[in-house]
Design a protein around this nucleic acid. Structure first.
Lengths: 115, 115
DNA sequence: TGCACATGCAAAGAGAAGTTAGCGGGTCAA
DNA sequence: TTGACCCGCTAACTTCTCTTTGCATGTGCA
């Protein structure tokens, strides 16, 4: 319904960077429909498991998806992923707000550089 | 107030990729306050003009800022940039919608590869 | 003329991100 | 025991992105 608590500038950049990828967009789209385990998801999306793993790791790191390990009826370990519900509203103003909490770039003043 | 018309999947990825950068976040934040010309903006942000140019080009390409060339009172050419107002709402569902309009990955089926 | 200010672009290096290939582990059923 | 599933990892390659450096353009003013 309403927006999530505003992210810090750094987190926002991280989340946006995570979403800015076609594979990861598709992963979220697939998981928004229903949770799935890695191998199944890889088949559905038509990509390798190794590649999917990497993208899932990034999505998890950004807090956009979560996983839980479960045992299937026939005893196999299955790692199920699902999307975390989120609402992100981006406008010039909201971005300006986030900019205030960005970690400052390493200002390397030549005079101070000798430290 | 309300949201902008939904972007295509590819455009969304482009826009997100553009926003996923601290420099560009700061540029938008600065321009959200007031329009500025390149050299001034570079001084304010403490980055080189060349670097800023690159980021402004990306922001322009993504449709997030726009520029107009103006002549200052003393006859110098000044390129003023300003933010385009935009509202982007990101949720798992909105992303799932965008995913449908992504250009499909080059599926290189070995059987068809000989074309 | 020379300096200060404005604009632009391109080459090249460094670093980050994406992708593949190959290896390891496990359970179950034939 | 073999094959079909499930999970994971890393090394190495390629590709993309960021950033700096350097050069070229223009105006106005001392």
């Amino acid at each position: 319904m309403s927006d999530d608590p505003p992210l810090s500038g750094d987190d926002l950049v991280r989340v946006l960077g995570t979403l800015a990828n076609p594979h990861r967009i598709r992963v979220i789209a697939a998981l928004a429909q229903e949770r799935a385990y890695v191998s199944r998801l890889a088949r559905d999306l038509g990509i390798s498991r190794a590649l999917l793993q990497v993208h899932l790791r990034k999505l998890t790191a950004a807090g956009l998806v979560s996983a839980q390990l479960e045992l299937s009826e026939d005893g196999k370990a299955m790692k199920y992923y699902e999307v975390k519900p989120f609402v992100l509203r981006l406008t010039p103003d909201s971005i300006a707000d986030a900019a205030r909490t960005l970690t400052p770039p390493d200002t390397i003043d030549p005079h101070e550089a000798e430290r």
